[in-house]
Amino acid sequence: MAKSALLKSSIVKKYWMALTGLFLCLFLAGHLAGNLQLLVPNNALNFNQYALFMTTNPAVKLLSYLTYISILFHAIDGIMLTIQNKKARPVSYAKTNPAANSSLASRNMAVLGTLILVFIATHMVNFWAKMHFDKNMPLMTKEIEVQGNKQKFYVGTQTGQYYPVEQVALVGEKQNPETMMVKQFVIKNGTELYYSQADVKTADLYKDLYKLTLDFFKDPKLGLVFTIFYVFSMLVLAFHLWHGFQSAFQSLGVNSSKLTPLIKFVGKAFSIVVPLLFAIIPIFLHFKK
């Protein structure tokens, strides 16, 4: 980009919009693949293993930073374009007939994008922030029958690591050594299991994103509201993608009688299938027995 400023030119702004948009489409496909595991019965362990991988793997971390940057850039670039576009018509028409020449989705990309941004913000507060920063994030437990009694165990990340919940002290729980009731383990740094009397780590525990997600959408008071909001947001996303997917290719200069019909078909299929599959998951979880 020697002769044109990276952001100043109208066309360069469109390239950035298209590139970040298409990258976010890839992100959506990846995110969806992960979420679909929630539909598999008795899949808590697999899902939490997957969640651990997604939050710790260095390559995934790199991709996640790229995703945050893309979302920010896509939003900021979009806001800048919208402001400029509004300025390009200081006096508006008294009578308009936009439906005669353009689709509803294509005319409302900024509004749709803003709604999606609001959804992303709430979504990150509800899941991403809890997974990353919440000290009280639930840890995965499993009920196992021991000599006829059902007992709850914390699950370690190594195969076969189970620790009875009653033997693990809560964070900050005061222990009285004189009562002989000292609990064997204590949790430190959110997920690390230590022996309570020797400062030695014995296991890493799973954060229970599965339970968090299930509880979120099954919440007796707000679960239904959260589910409806999620489904509504996916509808908004569908409209945004309906125009955005094929639009990105046009912005990058890909338009030919051979390719464009294919791109438009794939774009429409993507914009229906991906949001629909996303939306099925909270509905399934909300009504799950």
Binding site: K8, P98, S102, S103, S106
Partner: peptide
């Protein structure tokens, strides 16, 4: 084109 104050294309096709 940019200096004249025209807006940006959003591919509505109108």
């Amino acid at each position: 084109m940019d200096e004249e104050g025209f807006g940006n294309c959003t591919n509505t096709g109108a």
